[in-house]
Design a protein around this nucleic acid. Structure first.
Length: 189
DNA sequence: CCCTGATTCGC
DNA sequence: GCGAATCAGG
């Protein structure tokens, strides 16, 4: 496979979205993640900072400063082929089915019902915006299986981000899923 | 072990 | 320019 304009464009798009090189490679097909990374570098867009990561300034000697004074006209040919929908679908308010669960009432006890470090929760909310939003069938051993949303509605999906090696959830969700176990020890019954 | 990106270097 | 091999990390 070669780097056609379309493929490069998809590469840029996905890289910009923060997709990993391997994911991009998978999507493109015919290339390895190494190829993707190599291309990314050649394109000079290795830095994914969107303007909020001034922290890292490698003390590496850069013989070629590469000013990057690009001023591409970009006539915008936009030959968008069949691109996978962004996933933001119109959601026809659950037809043929009244809300099984009373509005505003507690959903099935999400594991986060207890006290979890506010940090962890904040982290979750943060990453859930980047979730792949997979369906049950799309889950693999390598995708986070954390459920999000209300199973009774269309607004339900699984995180799908890369799992923490071995575990069933991504880093953020591992944080709220595995608790030191403490609260409920004396459960009289 | 799984994964990530970064770099090198023969092609 | 390309990307496998390798490196360096999480």
């Amino acid at each position: 496979m070669s780097w056609t304009d379309e493929r490069v464009e998809l590469l840029k798009k996905m890289w910009g979205e923060g997709q990993s090189a391997s994911q991009i490679a998978k999507e493109l097909g015919g290339v390895t993640r190494n190829a993707v990374i190599g291309k990314v570098h050649r394109l000079g867009l290795s830095n994914r900072a969107t303007g909020a990561s001034p922290a890292k300034a490698e003390p590496k000697e850069k013989p070629a400063p590469a000013p990057k004074a690009e001023a591409k006209p970009k006539p915008a040919p936009k030959t968008e082929p069949a691109r996978p929908a962004p996933a933001a679908e119109a959601k026809p308010a659950i037809p043929a089915r009244r809300q099984i669960i009373p509005a505003g009432q507690p959903l099935p006890p999400q594991p986060s019902a207890n006290e979890i470090s506010p940090e962890a929760l904040a982290k979750v909310n943060e990453i859930e915006k980047k979730a792949k939003k997979l369906t049950l069938m799309e889950l693999t051993e390598k995708t986070c299986k954390w459920p999000v949303g209300d199973p009774a509605t269309e607004d339900f999906w699984f995180c799908g981000l890369p799992v923490e090696a071995g575990k069933p959830y991504c880093e953020a969700h591992v944080g709220v899923a595995f608790q030191p176990m403490s609260s409920r020890r004396d459960r009289r019954r």
